[in-house]
Lab assay of single mutants.
Amino acid sequence: MPVRRGHVAPQNTFLDTIIRKFEGQSRKFIIANARVENCAVIYCNDGFCELCGYSRAEVMQRPCTCDFLHGPRTQRRAAAQIAQALLGAEERKVEIAFYRKDGSCFLCLVDVVPVKNEDGAVIMFILNFEVVMEKDMVGSPAHDTNHRGPPTSWLAPGRAKTFRLKLPALLALTARESSVRSGGAGGAGAPGAVVVDVDLTPAAPSSESLALDEVTAMDNHVAGLGPAEERRALVGPGSPPRSAPGQLPSPRAHSLNPDASGSSCSLARTRSRESCASVRRASSADDIEAMRAGVLPPPPRHASTGAMHPLRSGLLNSTSDSDLVRYRTISKIPQITLNFVDLKGDPFLASPTSDREIIAPKIKERTHNVTEKVTQVLSLGADVLPEYKLQAPRIHRWTILHYSPFKAVWDWLILLLVIYTAVFTPYSAAFLLKETEEGPPATECGYACQPLAVVDLIVDIMFIVDILINFRTTYVNANEEVVSHPGRIAVHYFKGWFLIDMVAAIPFDLLI
């Protein structure tokens, strides 16, 4: 008679799926529990143990900040960024110097990925580790590398530091407007667009060049630039800015003055950032001319202004700041037409079709709590990747769950009947059967004279019903998954307890 339990259901295979997918890609990662103190490590794979030199037993239950890997060259700011990422709910990448158990130093890129439950609360953290440099290539500990984003994938490793954006290309926007319009339909740009040429040739750093990471940081200074100062900065030398009595002219307006920039070969870094931020506020060169004239017309309804409409929906549905990093990277690809469009465009503009998908598509409701890094690593669709929660398995109709209350009560009843059979069957065979043979035949009273025979008949009927119930009862397979398919249940029961239950259900007393 089957006594099969499996009270692990309803099970959740999400954690096993993450481990299996990460292991298949030869990654070095740990999984931490966000619900406990210090976000203790609950799993670390073999790749991480080989990377740091510690065994799994030495890593388990330690804080996922990996303070046991810190050393003299470990930056405090990087460690603080990892700790801050564990307090938030967004994906974050941090470069930090770690030390192995043998004392060797290596520069590592740590990717902190939160995993949320159905309520939107962070319950786990996945920390992925990628070695960037070994100890002989690690720089000085005073050099802070965590304020910069990861290198873009479309640049060669040897040319990542030679990417320079020439400031004269930004200063000569109005001069290039006529050349853009003359391109017409034969050019790649839309009317009114501004073409910015980027020099990728390796050259020595000069005062006129600005690194790509500095251009990325310009967006942080746009908020500090007032509207009046932006307007004066875009007017140009024809209309000098008016300053109040006793007030000095704005240095932001002076930063885009061609006369002032041409007199000296070098520009201050602050002026460069502010000038680029001011130019980015204009949607095209037409807006710059309109600002000089004193009238700013409404933005025209053409394809170039609607190019950012799908980007707005993608940004609203993005799951991490990696989408913004990807957008900034692609927006700086050289030799393309940049349409400086305000994100607050007309909502009635139709979304044009684009061959290049900048932001990841909208994630469906079932995966809105899973970050983009987890979705990318697992390579699963929205119909396959579940949320991290207890999910009731989908069972067929008329199927009994093996952990249901009805099955528990039924098993206790069958257990009592088995005990009765084990006690009274030998007793009936030894004593009652002998008395029946010696006594007179009682054929007239039937079952009324033999109450134990009636009980034995009921017990046999219950055993037959138990066999039928076992054909529709779920079970737990070797992978700790609840199986509810009727065919698989029948095959599993035939290979197991079916023969024993059938022999126990045969009414031998009635056959004798």
Rank of each mutant, 00 (worst) to 15 (best):
A40Q: 10
S272P: 10
H7S: 14
V59W: 01
L316S: 05
S304G: 08
S320F: 12
Q75T: 12
I359V: 07
P245A: 12
P205T: 05
A175L: 01
P237E: 14
V222K: 15
A307C: 14
S278L: 11
G262D: 10
G224A: 14
P258V: 09
I42S: 01
Y327T: 14
L315V: 14
A268S: 08
L349I: 10
A203Q: 06
H7E: 14
H70D: 01
I126K: 01
Q376I: 01
G262S: 15
R356K: 15
S178N: 15
L210H: 05
V94N: 01
A185T: 09
V196Q: 01
V122D: 06
I123D: 14
S255H: 09
K21L: 06
P297V: 10
R56K: 06
Q81F: 10
K332I: 01
G24K: 12
R62F: 04
D286F: 05
V325A: 14
S55F: 01
G120H: 13
E130F: 06
G158C: 05
P150V: 13
N220E: 12
P241C: 15
C108G: 05
R312H: 07
S354T: 15
Q75C: 14
A89W: 13
L165D: 10
F48C: 01
A175T: 08
L200W: 06
A290Y: 04
E274A: 11
T367D: 12
L248E: 12
A79K: 08
G381M: 05
V215D: 15
M60H: 01
C44W: 01
I19K: 03
H302I: 09
A277S: 14
E372K: 10
D199H: 01
L316K: 04
S239P: 07
V196N: 11
A293E: 08
V370F: 15
R73W: 06
P361V: 04
N128V: 15
C265Y: 14
R27G: 13
E37K: 07
M133Y: 07
S354M: 10
H143L: 06
S140F: 13
S313E: 07
C276F: 04
K364P: 04
E274G: 08
F129W: 01
S278C: 12
I333F: 03
D46S: 06
L15S: 02
A169K: 13
T305F: 11
F340Y: 14
A350I: 09
N146A: 11
